Simulated scan of single mutants.
Amino acid sequence: MSKLRILYAATEIDPFLQTTKVAEMLRRLPQGMQEMGAEIRIFVPRFGCINERKNRLHEVVRLSGINIAVGEDEKPLIIKVASIPTAKLQVYFIDNEDYFHRKSVMVDKDDKFHPDNDERAIFFCKGVLETVKKLGWSPDIVHCNDWMTGLIPLYLKTTYKKDPVFKNAKSVFTVYNNTFDNKFAGNIVEKAKMLDIDDAMLAGLASSDCNGFIRMGMEYADSVVKSDEDFSDDVNGLFQEYSLKKQLGQVGTGDNLLSSYYALYNELAN
């Protein structure tokens, strides 16, 4: 029996960056799955506050150089890697000078939401999938974590559906309590479009906020998981809306977390 292949996409991972619960989960879950025999790949944005020298990030030239379309603009993709020595895990960082070199994550030094956070999310989602294509590594499971990864399940079911690398991939979308009230500027639907995607498929983005990305992840993922946190009324409303269409994936907490996620992955893959 071949190893289960799991691709993780997330906003952050400890020890490189830790501002939310996502970082802790991405540190624990991939290592746990690897110890259970799974093959792992991890992708996160290379936010500018991640110290490259301290964390020994280096560019992978053979994977860099692709241009990623965000609306009418094309931005060069740079891929960097670093290892978590204690876990024997390699982490791939999605980088671009315009989007990720500022020394902050979602808000600036004055606590103002970056107006291009939607573009950064779109670039990240597309960049992950294009890089995995270039690696030629076919995941069984693509586990998307937090709002910034919310478009990946849609892209897997449309533009990348016939690609040999992704033809058997199933997606999991875990929602965390990390949304912002801010609205994105410009036509987000036009920015997010790809081949085989029409406006109706992107209707969930109409709210032009983080909840729109969550709505997209919920709609197109094969399984949706609610993290063990308290959510706003808006996000709880999304869960109620979603649960009328599909069943939420069930995972345990504490000591049961790893085994229940492993069971969920295998159920989807088989």
Rank of each mutant, 00 (worst) to 15 (best):
residue 157 K to D: 12
residue 158 T to E: 11
residue 152 I to W: 00
residue 149 T to M: 10
residue 163 D to R: 00
residue 182 N to R: 10
residue 184 F to I: 09
residue 167 K to T: 14
residue 139 P to V: 09
residue 169 A to E: 01
residue 173 F to S: 06
residue 166 F to K: 05
residue 164 P to C: 08
residue 169 A to P: 01
residue 178 N to M: 05
residue 191 K to R: 13
residue 139 P to Y: 03
residue 167 K to S: 10
residue 159 T to A: 08
residue 167 K to M: 11
residue 172 V to N: 11
residue 178 N to T: 15
residue 183 K to V: 09
residue 177 N to V: 07
residue 139 P to F: 04
residue 177 N to Y: 04
residue 160 Y to A: 12
residue 168 N to P: 00
residue 179 T to K: 02
residue 185 A to W: 08
residue 150 G to Y: 00
residue 188 I to A: 03
residue 152 I to M: 00
residue 178 N to Q: 09
residue 148 M to R: 13
residue 180 F to R: 14
residue 190 E to V: 08
residue 159 T to E: 14
residue 151 L to F: 01
residue 178 N to W: 01
residue 189 V to L: 12
residue 175 V to D: 08
residue 163 D to W: 01
residue 166 F to P: 04
residue 184 F to D: 13
residue 138 S to M: 09
residue 175 V to F: 03
residue 188 I to Q: 05
residue 169 A to Y: 01
residue 180 F to T: 09
residue 167 K to F: 04
residue 170 K to G: 02
residue 177 N to W: 07
residue 163 D to C: 01
residue 193 K to Q: 09
residue 168 N to C: 03
residue 168 N to M: 05
residue 177 N to M: 10
residue 152 I to D: 00
residue 138 S to D: 13
residue 168 N to H: 07
residue 155 Y to I: 06
residue 168 N to S: 10
residue 188 I to G: 03
residue 138 S to K: 11
residue 152 I to G: 00
residue 168 N to G: 02
residue 143 H to D: 15
residue 178 N to S: 11
residue 162 K to G: 13
residue 147 W to A: 08
residue 149 T to L: 01
residue 164 P to V: 11
residue 142 V to L: 12
residue 161 K to Q: 10
